[in-house]
Design a protein around this nucleic acid. Structure first.
Lengths: 155, 155
DNA sequence: TATTGTTATACTCTATAACTATA
DNA sequence: TATAGTTATAGAGTATAACAATA
């Protein structure tokens, strides 16, 4: 079985980078009292105000029960409210509070600062290139049209 | 406060890519009965056979207690043995068993296959470039010589 | 019955603190 | 006392399964 001659497995480098960077990113957020899940949920809410939870969970990439878990914490922190949709009382509309707005902006600043740190020494073309490469990696790992059998229906 | 004009925060894209790719990588390993921590520990062991646990933990980037946790599982799976170092009986030497060797090779194949999937459509120069960019990102996030105050002595 | 969300429970990875055994 | 490792415990993030409320 021919093995690619290229150096250390890309997957490994990537996993390592992923871990290192994610850790630093999480830490940057927790410094301002945030967390990655909260940040992603807040962003999803900014994109679609008064979203229901199914939409949110999908946007954030987690399961409904996991979302509930985070929303409970964020609600008791006063970042958001949940209320029934009058049109369909099964649906809970999630909305940001004033405090949630402020928290979002604070986290956004932390994320931007983190970005600047991350970009140090990388000219814009490189950033652009990296951005494309990352998108490509996501696609490569998400798609399943490639002949080989990963019998993994995405969970 | 000037904010970089560039699109979606790089940190976010990266976190998202990291999560997606890490998840897929973890799944690729678990398909062959492995896991990321086990894989990293096995690799560290291949690099320095009969390492002690302090060295291993450092190589893998986790705490001693966390390593013990994983080693317990791997030992009861028969992948490795721990025995006292006769020269310094405080030290536990960790060594791969036959079965550990096999497991390593299986995981390595899974990692290589994952890599090929990850590389799809990326010519070697791009991979090389990506590899450098990733290293750069790790450095940017690991270093602390940049004026700003992250009072984070690396844990 | 189907859909939306919650509750109960558990798993994985990680960590800190207190402990044991050596030195 | 200092060092190597383990045990006890906890916390964050995630998941599945069973449930309640609504349609």
């Amino acid at each position: 079985m021919p093995v690619p001659p290229s150096g250390p497995p890309l997957g490994l480098q990537l996993a390592e980078t992923a871990r290192t960077v994610s850790r630093a990113f999480d830490e940057a957020l927790s410094t301002v009292g945030g967390s990655r899940p909260a940040w992603q949920i807040l962003m999803a809410l900014k994109n679609r105000p008064t979203a229901n939870q199914r939409e949110l969970a999908t946007a954030v990439g987690i399961r409904g029960a996991t979302l509930t878990h985070h929303l409970d914490a964020m609600e008791s922190d006063g970042l958001l409210t949940r209320r029934r949709d009058p049109n369909n009382r099964r649906v809970h509309l999630v909305e940001l509070t004033e405090r949630g707005e402020r928290s979002f902006h604070t986290m956004r600043e932390a994320a931007v600062a983190f970005d600047q740190r991350l970009r140090r020494g990388l000219p814009p073309e490189e950033i652009e290139r990296l951005s494309e490469l990352l998108a490509r990696l996501r696609d490569n790992v998400t798609d399943e049209e490639d002949g080989t059998d990963h019998s993994t229906n995405r969970h």
